[in-house]
């Protein structure tokens, strides 16, 4: 078990390194920060000085090497715009996103398990059909569109929800609602399919022959077995949530990591962009590890192997 986890961590490390390479060079493809940062009429000497101060005059490979060396010392570089270490705004914004993602994920999982299970108990019934239709709709509606429609309807027309920002509970409703749609739709489908499989399984027959009630069959014997296939998809969805946050945070002005990333790209603030991507990636790797652990806790057959 420990060996398995160490192996997974090692894999993650390799992937993380690859990501560092990718992000560093891709960011450089977006253009020269000197042009953006300095006023249009800045002199050549000023440009030269700026480039030298930030090391932009060095060959790309040398820049990359010094970036790696700094990274090894947990130095993510300085933000071009904020005159403070790049990691600071990232660490400030990340928990804001994490909270949003966590609330969404908990809601998505709870709701999908309940809706999917009930739908699976009577496949083809009225509840199942409505749930299936809605979950397909939810999984396939573009989030940016629903976000804008949401603002138009609830904020502009009805005026009952704030358009953007944070602060009150009201501010949570639309971002969470929009972010929730896709994982809830997908997970409901997965839970339903997994639960139908489980309810047709031989051990459920045994449970029924023991005199177990339908509720017991679903929630004691069904859910844990069904979760085995759900949890893999849930992990993917949780990762996708953090990505989805880029759009939702931009639309709703939510001061999270997605918002920070977009601004960093607009401003060519490489250090902040790199730091935020690395932190996000790290979070996703940690989550995958947690999912592996959860999987092995749920399924004793994995634990043995």
């Amino acid at each position: 078990m420990t060996r398995f986890m160490l192996g997974r961590a090692l894999h993650s490390l390799v992937a993380l390194l690859a990501l560092v390479v990718l992000v560093f060079f891709l960011a450089r493809l977006t253009g020269d920060p000197t042009n953006l940062f300095l006023p249009m009429d800045a002199s050549l000497a000023e440009r030269q000085a700026f480039a030298e101060r930030h090391g932009f005059d060095e060959p790309l490979l040398v820049q990359f090497w010094s970036y790696l060396v700094d990274l090894a010392h947990l130095d993510f570089g300085m933000s071009l715009f904020q005159a403070r270490p790049a990691i600071e705004p990232v660490l400030g914004a990340f928990p804001v996103t994490l909270r949003l993602a966590l609330v969404t994920m908990v809601l998505a999982l709870t709701l999908s398990v309940v809706i999917g299970s009930v739908a699976a108990y009577g496949p083809g019934g009225l509840f199942d059909r409505i749930a299936s239709l809605l979950s397909i709709l939810g999984a396939s509606t573009p989030d940016f569109w629903i976000a804008i429609v949401g603002i138009l309807f609830f904020s502009v027309s009805l005026g009952i929800l704030p358009t953007s920002g944070t602060g009150t509970g009201w501010h949570w409703i639309m971002p969470v609602g929009v972010l929730l749609l896709r994982p809830l739709g997908l997970l409901t489908q997965v839970v339903r399919a997994a639960m139908i499989g489980v309810l047709n399984s031989a051990y459920v027959k045994t449970a029924r022959a023991k005199g177990a009630s339908p509720r017991r069959v679903i929630f004691v014997h069904g859910v844990r077995n069904a979760m085995l296939s759900v949890i893999t998809v849930a992990g993917d969805q949780a990762a996708a949530l953090i990505n989805g946050a880029v759009i939702v945070e931009t639309v709703f002005g939510w001061p999270g990591i997605g918002n920070l990333m977009i601004n960093a790209i607009k401003q060519r603030d490489f250090a902040v962009l790199q730091a935020s991507i690395l932190v996000t990636a790290l979070a996703i790797f940690v989550m995958n590890l947690l999912i592996d652990i959860a999987y092995s806790r749920l399924d004793p057959r994995i634990r043995a192997g």
């Binding site: 399984s201 031989a202 051990y203 027959k205 045994t206 449970a207 014997h221 844990r224 077995n225 085995l228 749920l298 399924d299 004793p300 057959r301």
Partner: peptide
């Protein structure tokens, strides 16, 4: 084997 719950 299939009639026993694999995770309990």
């Amino acid at each position: 084997l299939t009639h026993l719950n694999p995770v309990q």
